[in-house]
Amino acid sequence: MRKLIISRVLQAVPTLWVIATLTFFMTRYAPGGPFDSERAIPEEIKIKLQSHFGLDRPLFDQYLLYLKNLLQGDLGPSFKYPEWEVSELIATAFPVSLTLGLLSLLIALMVGIPAGMIAALRKNSWVDYLPMSLSMAGICLPTFVLGPLLIYALSTQLGMFPPLGWYGPADWVLPSLTLGLFYAAYIARLTRAGMLETLQQDYVRTARAKGAKSWRILTKHAARGGLLPVVTFLGPAFAGLITGSFVIESIFFIPGLGKFFVTAAFNRDYTMVLGTVLFYASLIILLNLLVDLLQAWLDPKARQEK
């Protein structure tokens, strides 16, 4: 177990370096720059700005300087919000996205897993067809449709929750529901498929031959194997959830991390792009490690192999 963690952390270093390098050069070679805008700024100011941020130095020198700062944990200043450091921007926005992501994940799991299990247990009955059709609809329905629908129903009509903003727990409900139900749809389908597969296994028949009740068969014998595909999906899904969603943030006016991914790229905010990409990559690496640990905990065979 410890060996796995150490080797993963060591593997992460070259991975992050490759990502940083690729992102650095790709953004630099993309047309335009951080100080190009529709209203052209005077040439001498632009030159001054560029020299202030070190953009006038040779590209490779800039790259080495960036790596050097990165090693010291310095992501540099934002080009677009000059009074902010990139790390400060991430630090303010991330807690918002983390709250939203965790709540959504909770909803997704609490809705998706039971729905998938029931559907698998009562295959080809209405408790299978109904949640599965709903989940198909959930997958097909983009969040920018589901969001406004929920706002209309629960906020405008019933007045239960505020339609937008991010001030208190009441504001958390609608966005987490929108995002959570979308993921719940995926999880329900994965759970159903995984459980169906497991319920056909010979060892489940053995459990029946022992006289186990359906509930015991489900929880003691089938759940572990059946949920393995869900666990695999959770890693990347969770990373996506807690780094924020541009669409959800735009609909509900939430000051989360998601918008930086989009605006930074548009603005050619080089340091911000690099900062968000590296932050996201580190999260993915970390969460995949967690998923592997979780899998090892669920599956004794995987435990031994690792």
């Binding site: 010979d202 053995t206 014998h221 572990r224």
Partner: peptide, 10 residues
């Protein structure tokens, strides 16, 4: 088949 008839998770 004793390979598949015992639960691998227990």
């Amino acid at each position: 088949d004793p390979m598949s008839c015992l639960n691998p998770f227990m």
